[in-house]
Structure formats: C-alpha cells, structure tokens
Design a binder for these strands. Structure first.
Lengths: 209, 209
DNA sequence: TACTAATAACTGACCAGGCAGTCAATAAGG
DNA sequence: CCTTATTGACTGCCTGGTCAGTTATTAGTA
C-alpha cells in the first residue's frame, strides 16, 4: 500500500503488487463480486494501471491463481526424493510439512476456495492444478505407501490405490477452517498427532502376520 | 420448465419451483454471477414473479440453501438412535449412508461448494450449518466412538476428540468430485471399503492389550 | 550542474452494457 | 366481473474497459 499523494513509476514491482492485491480481493469476494477499483485501491494505484499489465479481469485472475500456486509446486519437488528408512517416519515428516503448508498457510487454503468456487468459469484451472500440484502429491504419497508395503512395514491396503485416504484429514482441516473461520480452527498438534496415530495403526502389518 | 406461451396462476407451486431453479443457477455460477432473469427463465416465469415470493436476491439465496439443507438435517435425525451391538457395525452402516448422501448426491456437494464460496457474504450461513447439520453429525460420530471405547472394542484415540478424522475421507471424496468433475470421481465401493478397513484397523484395540 | 527534450508509466474522467429491483397494465380463474 | 398472480417494459446504479492527457524519469546538451 503506497503512500497516497505522490505518483511513482515502478514498472518492475507493479505486476507483483497488483497480483498480491488481487489475491486478497478475489479470496474475499470471489471472482464476480471483486471490483477492479478495489484491487487498484489496495495496490495503491488506479484501475487504468491494472490494464497496463493485464489485458482483462479474467487474465488477472488466472495470473493470480498461477502465481499463488507456484510455491506449492516448488515445495512439492523437494518431497520426491527416493525414500529410505522407515516408511512411517517418512509419512510423519511428510504430513508435518503438508500441514504447515496447507492448513496453517492461509494462502494455500484460499487458493482451494477460489478453485472450488470458480471451476465452472475456469475449467482448465482445476485440470492444471491436478496435473501440476495434486497429481504429483498423490503419486508421491503412493510411492511411500508402496515402499512401506515392500519393506514389510505396512500391510497391503486401499491406501495404495487411494492415497487420498491418508491425505483426507488435511483436506478436512483445510475445509473446516475455510468454512468456519480461524476462530473454530480444528488443527493444532493434537489433530496432527491423532491423524498420524490412526494412520500408523491403520497401515501397520498386524502383530501375528 | 413450463411450456412457453400460456400463462398460469400457481401460487402454491411457485416458491418451490423458483428455489429449485435458483439452486441450479447458484450452484453453476455462484451468487454474484447468477442473473435473476436466468433463474426466472429456468423456472418458466419472469423476473417480476420472483419478487412476488422473495424480497431480494439475497433472500432467495438464503431460502435456497436452507431448503436444500433440509433433507440432510432430517436424515441426520434418523442416525441419533441409541447405539447397540458392534460399534464398528454402526460405523459401517453410518458411513455407507453418509457416502450416499454426501458424495453421490450432487445437491449435497453443491451446497458445500456454495457455502464455501459465499461465507464471506453470508457469515451466519456457515454458523447455522455448523449448528444444525455438521455439529450434530460430529457429536453423533463421537458418541459411537465413545461407545466403542467403553465397550472395549476400540482403543482410546484422538478420534474421540476429533471424529473429523474418521469423517475426513468423505469430505475428501466430496471435494475431489466438486473440483475435478464426475469424470474423475474418486469414490465407488473400493474407496468406501478402503476407508472402512483403515478406520477399523486404526480404531481397533490391539491384539495383545 | 542546470536546463531541455523525449519517453512511457500512470491517471481519472468517461462510456457502454448489464442487471437488481419496480410498477402499471394484463389476464387467469373463480 | 372482481380479485390477484403474472407480466414486461422501465429505471438507476454499478463496474469492466478505454483513452487523451499528465507527470516522473532518463538521456542528451551546454
């Protein structure tokens, strides 16, 4: 938010500032209800300036979602190393990381809300998201489950076909918080610990097998 | 969708038909992007008639969400009977039911989308939904878990504090389908079976305890 | 250093179209 | 023929998008 009054030329910083402001407005009100004048005001500029950098409201929205997704896609890459050691230990650190980045980070949550709300208007957005973020995440998780099974640490379960079952509590916490606000947030260490505990017992090879 | 041409007076049926049409339009486009002319056209009437029965677009939206929620709230009541027999058996029938009504029923899914998308515009909507639908569902689930623990069938787990952990795969399937469309739907019998299997092993009292 | 010219980032006033909400006129039905 | 459900044309506001003009900044000149 620039100081009012003085006019400045800042070709380099503008796009980022506009996207940042747009994210806040789109997350709050949704695509249709967001006014570009409000976005401009939040970025400390006027509506005309937005059109110097983005050809239309739709393009601004697409750019915003893509930009906000970038860190998720990048962080994901760090998780695809070849597994070694206890599979359960890998899952522990994996989910600790995922909670940090999907439940506690407001941006990731709001992206989910925006995508859910606007899929009908931007159909390819969800497809891209699946291809670039969610798909790899699922594959990654599946790899760890397989590794655990091969290693004799886990029994064979549907989690191999549907790693989503393991991931589900993350989405639940995410959705809960989106729906009922930070005040009723569900997570915290106890929730994660409970998730991991149930998962461990659910996956573990039985004592007598 | 009435036949075009003839004009009819149907005071009794109108509100229901309008709400039905409004649901389709709101679910498709969201609150802000929905045009009352489109709702009217879908209901086979004109915009003016809507205002005979609903004072504003916002009121129509509220009525729509409330109306679509009614079956969920009613069905829920059937599940609150005093538990008896195997706790796991109760959970099985419970989740079979819930999948039918939250994942396979398009309406329930779309309601979730609408609520998620419009919470910032209708803050009390989510609160009411929590108080009347979700809250009781969570309590109900918690009761079953407690019953299983008291009965010695389940070990004490975080599922007592967070029944959400058990419910999470439902939300996951729901969200997945909302996001990626029926074509990529995740559910089916295998998913539910896998969910139940992991849950059973996760909750079960260990062999040697 | 000071002054000028050229460039282009930025503004703000302005349309044009769209849509929520209104109401006098119309016609269905008893 | 009287009541009232329904219509559809109308209004006023709102907002995405435009563009001629303004001004910060840089390059060039003395």
């Amino acid at each position: 938010m620039a100081v009012a009054g003085q006019r400045r030329r800042r070709k380099e910083e503008r796009p980022g500032e506009i996207v940042e402001a747009a994210f806040e407005e789109f997350a709050r009100a949704g695509f249709a209800a967001t006014k570009l004048d409000d976005v401009a005001a939040r970025a400390g500029i006027t509506k005309g300036t937005i059109y110097l950098y983005f050809p239309s409201k739709e393009d601004l929205f697409l750019a915003t979602v893509r930009e906000m997704n970038r860190p998720a896609a990048e962080n994901l890459a760090a998780l695809t190393a070849a597994p070694q050691g206890s599979a359960m230990a890998i899952l522990r650190t994996h989910f600790a990381f995922v909670y940090k980045h999907m439940v506690e980070d407001r941006r990731a949550r709001e992206i989910m809300r925006m995508l859910l709300a606007e899929v009908s208007r931007f159909p390819d957005l969800a497809d891209r998201w699946r291809a670039e973020v969610i798909g790899p995440a699922v594959d990654n998780l599946r790899r760890v489950v397989r590794y655990g099974i091969e290693r004799g640490e886990f029994r064979p379960t549907a989690a191999e076909e549907f790693p989503h079952l393991l991931f589900a509590p993350v989405i639940m916490a995410c959705t809960w918080r989106l729906m009922f606000g930070d005040g009723h947030a569900l997570d915290g260490a106890a929730y994660l610990a409970g998730h991991l505990d149930l998962m461990e017992r659910g996956l573990a090879r039985g004592e007598g097998a």
